[in-house]
Amino acid sequence: MFNITFYLRRLHSLVGLFMGAFLMVHIGNNSAVLLGPDMMNMVIGTMDKMPMFIRLPIELGLIAAPFGFHALYGVYIALQARNNPIRYGYLQNWQFTLQRWTAWYLLVFLIWHVYYLAIHTRITGIHLCFEFLQSYLSNPVYWVLYVLGMWAAIFHFTNGINTFCMTWGIAKGPRIQMVINMACMGLCGALCLETLALMLVYILPIF
């Protein structure tokens, strides 16, 4: 007996975790900026050295496709919910709601982000570097939207780890669920602070 719903939903969960891994790598790369613009440019340069015939399949197969699936199925999931955190203002219910709200935001944000920084720059031949990003993010609206985008992704991922543990039946009892939740939210807070710091590099005269 094969229940397609079950496999799709579990796949969605796994893919989410995979996307999260990518997010961690991405944040790690971006953090290079904390060591200075040169470091950042070096990291971007290393990426650029990868030949297109390797890079494109990776981007399409390992990033775009899973993301597309996670996003599309996620839209379906989000539409199944009628959020009620005002009536039931429990922490976990707020997390549930934020998971969906961040998802909607990320959907729009990532399309914008990927289109502009990965597709538009390649088509128009703009060279991606610290200086370009600095001028781009000097627009305060963009900067704020980017910070929010990063935070949304971090929350969505860390809370995703939390619910992953419940969905897969790893954390069963209330105590372990609470412990994992707190650990995930701790990670969320730490990553949010880190991304805030790296985003500040672009607008503050540090280097």
């Binding site: 999931i77 219910n93 549930f96 619910t163 419940m166 969905t167 897969w168 039946g169 069963k172 009892g173």
Partner: peptide, 25 residues
């Protein structure tokens, strides 16, 4: 979706989230 409201709403104090996790397993 693991909102966890059920266990708080249950007037009989049934540990619903625990059993949901068990069934997930």
């Amino acid at each position: 979706g693991n909102s966890g409201n059920c266990v708080k709403a249950c007037p009989k104090g049934i540990k619903l989230t625990t059993y949901l996790a068990q069934i997930n397993r």
